[in-house]
């Protein structure tokens, strides 16, 4: 008896149904952390890249992917860790950015990741003050509370107009 293996396109569709454990409105493919899907004989190999090297969600994401694919009938799944090229917020899809915003998280502003000495110079001269729009009222009159927020990928901000505290998905 021969078993027809699902196409990798089908697998990508299934993966787009797997939510990120910490921000469930976006999927693992929305975030751009699935790097490769391929068949190795009758084993499905899925390469995932970590967002942050110490991100505690990594193991949970692997588990969620494996569980979902098994539920779809894939019997042999192998998860691989892929480090390079390193994940950046550039991989976050446009659709995901809209979803983040409506969920109350300000999406990342591309090209604003710190770059060490250059970032230092920018900050000392005041050029590093980003305008992060409040996801609730849209005001640009917001202030950074902390560069480090509830999870490694987010910073804490507050709106000075509507007073809403919110997360900013920081550029990485």
């Amino acid at each position: 008896m021969t078993v027809t293996l699902p196409s990798t396109g089908q697998v990508w569709d299934w993966l787009s149904e797997v939510p990120d454990p910490e921000i469930p409105v976006v999927s693992v493919t929305d975030l751009g952390i699935v790097r490769d899907v391929r068949w190795d004989g009758d084993t499905l190999a899925v390469a995932v890249t970590p967002t942050y090297s110490g991100c505690p969600a990594t193991a949970v994401i692997d588990l969620a992917i494996e569980t979902h694919l098994r539920a779809k009938g894939v019997e042999k799944v192998r998860l691989e860790r892929r480090l390079s090229p390193p994940w950046t917020t550039d991989w976050v899809t446009a659709e995901a950015r809209e979803k983040l915003k409506s969920y109350g998280i300000a999406p990342p502003i591309d090209g604003t990741a710190p770059d060490g000495r250059g970032g230092l110079a920018a900050r000392l001269s005041g050029r590093a003050n980003l305008v992060i729009e409040c996801p609730r009222c849209g005001s640009g009159n917001t202030a950074k509370v902390s560069q480090f927020g509830s999870t490694p990928c987010k910073a804490s901000y507050q709106c000075r107009d509507c007073l809403e505290p919110f997360d900013y998905f920081k550029c990485h």
Partner: peptide, 15 residues
């Protein structure tokens, strides 16, 4: 590849 990954985090630490 490890350094490239860690560097992005450490840039935030230094900032």
């Amino acid at each position: 590849e490890i350094a490239a990954k860690a560097l992005k985090e450490v840039a935030y630490h230094l900032e």
